[in-house]
Design a protein around this nucleic acid. Structure first.
Lengths: 138, 138
DNA sequence: TTAAACTTTGCAATGGCATTGCATTGTAAC
DNA sequence: GTTACAATGCAATGCCATTGCAAAGTTTAA
């Protein structure tokens, strides 16, 4: 059982340990990006550092990506698109709900070209929209 | 002397104390956004908390704005445009140099419309481009 | 001028998060 | 089964943001 989770990990060259399967499963059931602390609570009494390293491993292998939503706390979400180890999709568009605190990955929209000063070169852009999510603006 | 600095503060309803004049002066001489730690080093041996509160006061009164450049450390820069107390310019476009670590406020360019899911409402958007600045890409 | 009231500053302390070191346990190869 | 490597758990550190409180400074009013 759980062959699917296992295969997902193997496909990314990640050793499918019990802990990792738990983490992956938990991540897959989330509707939005979660923090390390969220994960810790959801998987108590798992060790925080182990979870931290698990997320790191997932990220390095292109299974999840980390999000800086401006709260100062890193959030993680499963990569929906084709991320490659070490080099994720360069463009991230996320939405932070000021009421519920949820962080959502937005579907890839057209990415704006930002005009840079002379000699400035950008290879990455982080975009976070803030406001009220569907649930909270009802 | 220093009537200019003083007037700048007064114009924002900020009591022009010695400390605040120092901080304002320091901020004005920076070519890019600085962190609390930067400020602390530049104005040693001033107390960190006092500087922190000074920045807060400046921010609340629309004199500086804080920037989340994705490093996890808040940066501050003087508002060049017309920020109002409590409600800053909603759109921030900044550039983070991966080499020198400098954070720059970019001139206001056209801001992209991000397409949001149904019922999502955004009133703020944070955009950070990352790469190499003019100095570092030479 | 002095006392009271308010503002600003400085010091101490806390809390949260990211990160690392190291010892222990689990797993796989020989 | 023993050796070698990977993963886990615990302890500890460091950095940053933030708050409480007391001391010092400033303004206002008798």
């Amino acid at each position: 059982m759980n062959g699917q989770l296992e295969n997902t990990l193997k496909a990314k060259q990640i050793n499918p340990t019990a802990m990792r399967l738990l983490v992956l499963n938990f991540l897959q059931t989330q509707s939005y990006a979660i923090s390390l602390t969220d994960l810790e609570k959801g998987l108590a009494p798992a060790d925080r550092v182990t979870l931290y390293r698990t997320l790191k491993t997932f990220e390095e292998n292109g299974l999840v990506h980390s999000i800086d939503d401006g709260t100062g706390v890193t959030k993680y979400a499963i990569c929906k698109e084709h991320c490659h180890p070490g080099e994720h999709d360069d463009v991230h568009v996320h939405f932070f709900c000021k009421k519920c605190g949820g962080t959502f990955c937005l579907p890839k929209t057209q990415i704006p070209e930002v005009i840079l000063p002379v000699n400035f070169h950008s290879d990455e852009i982080n975009i976070v929209a803030k406001g009220l999510c569907g649930q909270c603006s009802g």
